[in-house]
């Protein structure tokens, strides 16, 4: 077995066995972290692999979450498979339309324009009655996973949700790894490295970026759907700019453009948050300070630190 897989597989085993501790609060917290990790993975496809720093990714996360809330009848369960499909398609469609506009800009302008679009989504849900305004909306009955008379899992049971989300996280991770080594993924990495040359070589760069933006939006919608299904509640904060910044921080903290970085970042940021808020009322000051220190001393993110530790432990293996 390649050495670089040891740590990830050990972590996966730990996460898979963790619910046996019976600590329901932490099982639900870890579920939430894994949902954020899926969200962060989707953003890293843009930030880390294509070179598109989006500051509005929460819009598509929110569309996925609101799709479930809006598709759920007041007193009955929505069908999970159909509502999930619609949520992903709705998020993808929104990302496609937004992408057509924002991909005309570059660099700092791209950051600002993605933020502006996300704010439009935010105010649609905040200021209109579409999704219950600023109060949000409950998913009174969790969606029903029954498929051809068979119910594989029950979303009312936190431990089943935990394993469902873990499975989705592993699948999304594997899917993105596959995409990144496909011709499409290689082209995205070429675009990040040298957009002008890719164009001169004959790649329709904007179309590739738009496809990546749409795919990332679809995966963010999947994560948002899971959040709404887990918590049973949506409100406009899900698509606020804080949320976009939060997930961007996870990506940067864990290491943009590294396979495991976004997952590590989701765990690290949430746990730092929990830790500081448990010991002081002024947790934001300490959380901010910790982030500044990490970014200052580990510009490649925590994933970079993990690589350095591995190299020191296992000697000068060339997998850097």
């Amino acid at each position: 077995m390649p050495r670089r897989l040891i740590a990830p597989l050990a972590a996966l085993a730990l996460v898979a066995l963790f619910p046996m501790s019976g600590a329901t609060f932490y099982v639900e917290l870890t579920t939430k972290i894994m949902i954020m990790a899926i969200f962060a993975l989707s953003l890293d496809l843009l930030v880390g692999w294509t070179g598109l720093v989006s500051f509005g990714h929460a819009a598509f996360f929110g569309v996925g979450a609101y799709a479930l809330a809006l598709l759920s009848p007041r007193a009955e369960a929505a069908g999970l498979w159909s509502s999930l499909g619609i949520a992903i398609l709705a998020a993808a469609a929104c990302a496609l339309v937004v992408g057509i506009f924002v991909l005309r800009t570059r660099g700092i302008y791209f950051i600002m324009v993605t933020l502006a679009f996300a704010q439009m989504f935010y105010f649609v849900f905040h200021d209109t009655d579409v999704g219950g305004g600023s109060d949000g909306r409950y998913v009174n009955v969790k969606p029903d996973a029954t498929l051809f008379g068979f119910t594989p899992f029950d979303l009312d049971k936190p431990y089943q949700v935990y394993y469902l989300v873990l499975a989705v996280l592993v699948l999304v991770f594997a899917f993105l790894q596959m995409v990144l080594r496909s011709p499409f993924g290689r082209a995205l990495q070429g675009i990040r490295a040298n957009e002008q040359r890719m164009r001169a070589l004959g790649f329709p760069v904007t179309a590739y970026k738009l496809a990546a933006f749409t795919l990332a939006g679809a995966l963010a919608g999947l994560a948002g759907y899971l959040l709404a299904a887990q918590s049973g509640f949506v409100n406009p904060e899900i698509l606020s700019w804080h949320q976009s910044g939060n997930v961007l921080l996870m990506v940067i903290l864990g290491g943009a453009g590294t396979p495991f970085g976004p997952i590590v970042g989701a765990f690290a940021l949430t746990m730092l948050h929990e830790f500081f808020s448990s010991i002081t009322r002024h947790w934001q000051l300490f959380l901010g300070g910790a982030i500044v220190l990490i970014v200052l001393f580990m510009p490649g993110g925590l994933g970079h630190l993990a690589r350095r530790i591995r190299r020191n432990l296992f000697g000068g293996a060339r997998d850097g």
Binding site: R181, S182, R186, L201, F203
Partner: peptide, 23 residues
Amino acid sequence: LAAQSRRPRPLALALDAARDPDS
């Protein structure tokens, strides 16, 4: 990557580009 532009196959998501005999 330069060669890939002649037969880009962006939808072949399961294909390992590094092993694509054509490019």
